[in-house]
Design a protein around this nucleic acid. Sequence first.
RNA 1: GGGAGCAUAGCUCAGUUGGUUUAGAGCAUCUGCCUUACAAGCAGAGGGUCCGCGGUUCGAACCCGUGUGCUCCCA
Length: 889
Amino acid sequence: MELSKNFIAGEAEAKWYAHWLDKGYFNSTPDEREPYTIVIPPPNVTGVLHMGHCLNNTIQDILIRRARMQGKNACWVPGTDHASIATEAKVVGMLRERGIAKSSLTREEFLAYAWEWKEKYGGIILQQLKKLGCSLDWNRTSFTMDKDYYQSVMKVFVDLHGKGLIYRGKRMVNWDPVSLTALSDEEVIFKEVDSKLYYVKYLLTDKDGQPSGDGAGLTVATTRPETILGDIAICVNPTDERYTNLIGKNVLVPIINRVIPVIADEYVTMDFGTGALKITPAHDKNDNVLGIKHNLKAIDTLDASGKFTAENLMEDKPSELVLSYVGVDRFALRKKIVEDISALQLIEKTEEYKGQVGTSERTGAVIEHRLSLQWFIDMQKFIANNPEILSAVSDDNIAFHPAKLKNTYSHWMGNIKDWCISRQLWWGQQIPAWYDEAGNVYVAESLEALHTNQPATIGMQLKQDEDVLDTWFSSWLWPMEVFKGISHPGNDDIAYYYPSTTLVTGQDILFFWVARMIMAGYEYAGQRPFKDVYFTGMVRDKLGRKMSKQLGNSPDLLALIDNYGADAVRFGIMVSSPAGNDLMFDESALEQGRNFNNKLWNALKLVKMWEARVADNNDTSDPNSFAINWFTNRLNQVKAEVEILMHQFRLSEALKTIYSLIWDDFCSWYLEWVKPGFEQPVEAAVFNTTVAFFEELMQLLHPFMPFVSEEIYHLLRQQSTDLCVTQDAPTIAAAVPVLQQGELLKQVISALRDARNKNQLKPKETIQLHIQTEDSAAFKAIENIISKQVNAAAVFYTNDTVANSIVVAVEQNKFYIESEQKLDSAALKTDLLKDLAHQQGFIASVQKKLSNEKFVQNAKPEVIELERKKLSDAAARIKTIEEGLAGLN
RNA sequence: GGGAGCAUAGCUCAGUUGGUUUAGAGCAUCUGCCUUACAAGCAGAGGGUCCGCGGUUCGAACCCGUGUGCUCCCA
């Protein structure tokens, strides 16, 4: 069969993926084998594959393919997340394009559109994962809004509510005035913005609540003058001498002329602004805390969309001016109020100010702090009920890779705040709470369940809570509910697959997701949800910038797969990506992957070329026996190394180790050593062993580069099964002496080639080689390899220096090169002198150490022994160099 | 403001309880080669104040302190 010039990735990818699916290799059902379970971090159902997914899922595929080849029952569960905010935003956008406003639809109508949209466009990302070669069990595809899943979320809500872990309360929440929903702290991104600091004067009042008339007052610095109409107090630090005499007095809020007290609290920083702080409990988190502490009223002056409202100002008998603000957006309002206060001559000055502003992760809108009735989980109590949530991570029952994230986890857990789980959206699991006309709350899995549990509710006018649950309130059940462990507890799947083995995810969702899965795992399964967590970093461009649509630095992954092949993309993204480190993505790494494919392909071509001229006798020459013996051991050595690296989740290093084994040891050394001369026959043993080596190499590489390895595996010879499910042979301990001899051989060849290069001998020009060694037997077995590799026409053994030659020293052996070309020993002499200086310097440093009495007294005996050996080795080396130099003259 | 982490070759990274030859790899660079598997290749080479300063130690890339720079998380 004629092989193409290069590996054609696209063809092999389509062919093998279809074949693997056809054979059902990725499907798993419980059996007597040990399970290896991974649940995919469910991408947003609206998502498309990007570099982050690529890294993440390549890692998962490597782990799951390796487990499959090690005889475990490998199960990798795919699925998607309904992603309430992101999906609802997309659907709203889609409707807007069609000229339909969400506000014109009923909840049911909107959800019908959302499902239609989800069926049509949702889950594209799962198809894209197939392109990457991901070996997921597609029969198990889950969605966080599947019927059973939905029910499991209801069940958990009701359960936690019953346990007193869920409560409803008025709390200051992060409010997104654009999507009209509360956000968790994790969904708020702080950004530095240029703003202004306004110095506003509040006039002191007399006993009757009128301005004191002398213009006396107190100046407050604020970045948010639009909230001024909600001010309820001015606060100063009790130790601030500037204001001591004002504490307890009253001032007037500009424009609205509300009389408010000056109070004192240590919270106030004296050196920020004027040292006086206006307190607006309805619009600022810290103010809210102070408000509660000092028993102050919260006056809300902004509505849900961030526009001014006078609803709560009626007590103040608002003026025409105040009423004119109604409906004005907060940013326009800021301008307007500043102008109006300015007109009253109560703005003393304005400063430029760089401040932090919270923005919505989804819509980018500046968030408001807003008092709102929301559902919460009492996290302190939750953790107190399940102390393993903390201990499992600290004592490595759940092992984090890299381990440094353990600190981050325990620090967060130690300072945990209650989790606001309600969202003012329609797409998601609607909160299973009903209100009667009196406002009483009833919680049950469904209306039917409610009527069954509390027959008194039958016939009542009940209205279900409008809100849905935070997306993470469903995804924290993922490792259990993909096996229906909540909706159908104790079923065969959950019993077999849970806890899962490894979770691979981004460290950015350590708190959003990983921590909460651990919490749910202990609460509902009584055990950890996974054994190991591999955290990936963020994928950045090669300049270290985050990938973003705005910068346009986010490559089109499918185009990359088309250009380089899926294996090359997998190689490129894995080759320099240790756990937890950000990955600087550079397309040149993909090129390296593609070149590697090509290298493999060419090695295959070489071996296939031999197939036609295999000798029909069973002789094996000495040098070939040596080469085979050496590579057998080298392969075992690397297999053992890879096993350790994989066990430590050092995937990048494992890949590099395999890459170097194939490229350097197999292609550059082994194949060159056993390669027959032009059109010469190849020994049968050499051919068969080489094919077997090649198969083992493909097996080792398969988890990383599945397509090219499967393709080559089948082209090497007729196979009875597929590489994808071929079980790894046990690793045999490598024999050290033959490995050492191999290293010596490589060194000798390199040194001789270097000497040839330095003397500008053309590759085609032959040399005569004289070997001076104490162990000529060792060289007899490999002299043919040496002569082939350094193009020596003849090899001799000598006990003496050879005149008119160049000398090369390797360990205690000397090699003399004779050539018909004129040899220029100058370059070589320079090298030898350099080496000599290096060795002498080295000896000096070792001698210094050994002559230090304290070193000899304190150092461990084996360390001293080692130093002595270094000294004698270096001395021997110097002797060899000096003899070489003498021979040159 | 609080906390965590990082800093080693041009780039991306190893460096395993402080001693394993005066620090390693891949990529990039340079030199020489169109050598019947591979120029997407082969054979070589050069390249480092291990961020600065101070300390502990017989001995420090590694431990401690401090400064600088960067990143992330939380307010």
